[in-house]
Design a protein around this nucleic acid. Structure first.
Lengths: 342, 342
DNA sequence: AGACAGAGTGGGAGCGCTCCCAGTCGGTTG
DNA sequence: CAACCGACTGGGAGCGCTCCCACTCTGTCT
């Protein structure tokens, strides 16, 4: 009855049990920290484990528990935004930090086209992860609904609409935008334009709403010609600025819904010979690295992106552990970082 | 003998076999595209599969094949460089692109401290991935050796030393640096300093060597006081520039081994009232987004980072498929992008 | 003294797949 | 006409684990 294991192989539970002189069940209990193991048995098993350098086979475990100990972070990158935006890096850092205390691993999934979307769908249907984090949500995004249908624990950064049914985390976009606009008003600006993000995204809408609310609150007229809808890209920001200036030459301030777009606006203003902040004040959103390096340095609304990543992960882990918990929502505060552009 | 499967469950191979009226083996052969299945049987199986919406259970498959269909991208981020550097984003994009045609998934692992290193080691020992991509290699990094020992297919971005034994991909750091320095010489610069990366990294050394070689090649003296060793951070670049200027006030050009450090240098130069490029020319390395947004716009050596990610992945996939293949090495070309700073 | 908890334990069953080996069944061949 | 061959097929065995049930001990209570 002695062992005749292939020596090249990794040791199995069985091998540990044999060496420790106990049964498989006991080893399993020790490995998983289950109660009901005598101190003596536990010690014997632990010795055997470290002696054999035993590491459980995750596939075997996964087969029976149907857990994978993996979560996916899904980034739709159709607009090649991963290139320019430190946003995603920051989220990744946050997620990874929160996961570090766990045995969970992070799967990164970039979804750029239809094909990759299908791939992700199959992937989720195969239950290759225990949960999914979704960033950069568009209103008509099919993914959240799909995941909800297959009962996959999911947390969104942002939301499809103000009455989002899934758990989600986002920063106070309305408040942040309003603060920026108020700062412009307080600086004596009278004609404050805004360059928005895509309006099929809640963050685009909310930041626009912040602009509206701040103006209304101070009794300033809300002229729709001062709204240029854009797309979070530098080129888009520049084009928007151009349109704005053509439409209303007297503009003396712009609130852009992202730093990247603000940079585009800055370029256009320079080209037209408008001085910043003397002629036109500019405020961005995100407080990304780039904000410190523009000329003049960009005033911007900081949102705690890394914290968003951490919070999302925390919510997701809770939801995985306790799938019955009601969906939660978290709003994180923003801060206005004043530099030279406004 | 009819089926009495729990209806909430996902369908299994067995269920498909039953519905198609064939054996498990045949279904397995169809799913895996093995030859030796009659057209009739294949059709029946395919119908059954789409009817039941069957998706193979990866854990079960993994248990018997001991493949995981996952590769890990490991990023040591001790210096919090992920924050500032689009480098990592670009690598991720490249890797992801190359993986898109495969059924392989990407696991992202940030290693920031000792604890996370241990976690990664356990992870690799548990064979939770089929292969590993490693970026930002330091000479004394224990990880490559560890992975080599456990026979884990591995590809490095960069190398531990010029006689690296593992497969690796890197750009022509020596050549790129030399080109930059030659450009400075051609521009009439006489006292050309350099701000290096960490010298325990091959990329740091190689770029420094490029500086040396270009000077030597043009018969210019190589003054060691013109070398400031730094660390790829903005603050480090600034400090290095300060030291350089204190040591040799007559400097009229600097080659920085990364854009981020070049930005730091630019800041210091501005502070000291040295005009760029009039008094001092500056060239960076990487051609990252930031280079276009500094004032003046930064001349920089572009390296094809996304292509590096793609190449690494290609090599890794080959090595996974054919573990016996000799380790390969790939060097990718660089290009000097001339802007306003030199 | 006998009955009975309760703690601790061993090991069977089974997760869903792949691998492989014996078949089966037509169609050739000598 | 028998022997044989190749193409195709079914299903047993087994991957390494967890789950759970039955069992063995102690010690305790009546």
């Amino acid at each position: 009855m002695s062992s005749r294991k292939h020596q090249g192989q990794r040791p199995t539970l069985e091998a540990v049990a044999e060496l420790a002189g106990v049964g498989r069940g006991t080893v399993s209990r020790v490995v998983n920290g289950s109660p009901g193991v005598s101190a003596k048995a536990r010690a014997a098993v632990e010795t055997a484990i470290s002696q054999l350098n035993y590491i459980p086979n995750p596939a075997a475990r996964s087969l029976v528990t149907s857990r994978t100990d993996c979560v996916a972070l899904v980034i739709p990158e159709s607009e090649s935004r991963l290139a320019a935006e430190p946003y995603f890096s920051a989220v990744i850092r946050g997620v990874s930090t929160e996961l570090a205390d766990t045995e969970m691993q992070l799967l990164l999934i970039l979804v750029r086209d239809r094909r990759e979307l299908d791939r992700l769908t199959r992937f989720a249907a195969a239950r290759r992860v225990d949960g999914v984090l979704l960033v950069s949500i568009h209103d008509d995004d099919p993914l959240p609904g799909l995941l909800e249908e297959m009962r996959m624990p999911t947390v969104l950064a942002g939301r499809r609409s103000p009455e989002e049914s899934l758990s989600h985390v986002h920063s106070d976009n309305v408040g942040g935008a309003a603060t920026a606009v108020r700062h412009l008003i307080d600086g004596g600006r009278a004609t404050i334009a805004t360059i928005t993000g895509p309006l099929d995204m809640d963050v685009g809408n909310s930041r626009l709403r912040g602009w509206r609310e701040a103006l209304a609150e101070r009794g300033m007229p809300v002229d729709e010609r001062l709204v240029a809808v854009s797309d979070f890209t530098e080129e888009g920001g520049r084009t928007a600025m151009r349109d704005l200036l053509d439409r209303v030459p007297g503009i003396d301030a712009v609130f852009a819904a992202s730093d990247v777009m603000a940079v585009g606006a800055l370029t256009e203003l320079r080209e037209r010979g408008r001085r910043v902040p003397d002629d036109v004040a500019v405020i961005g959103f995100d407080d990304s690295v780039i904000a410190r390096h523009t000329t003049p340095a960009l005033t911007s609304v900081r949102q705690p992106i890394e914290a968003i990543g951490r919070s999302m992960t925390r919510l997701l882990l809770e939801e995985i552990a306790e799938p019955t918990t009601a969906h939660q929502q978290l709003v994180l505060p923003t801060t206005l970082i004043v530099r030279d552009s406004a």
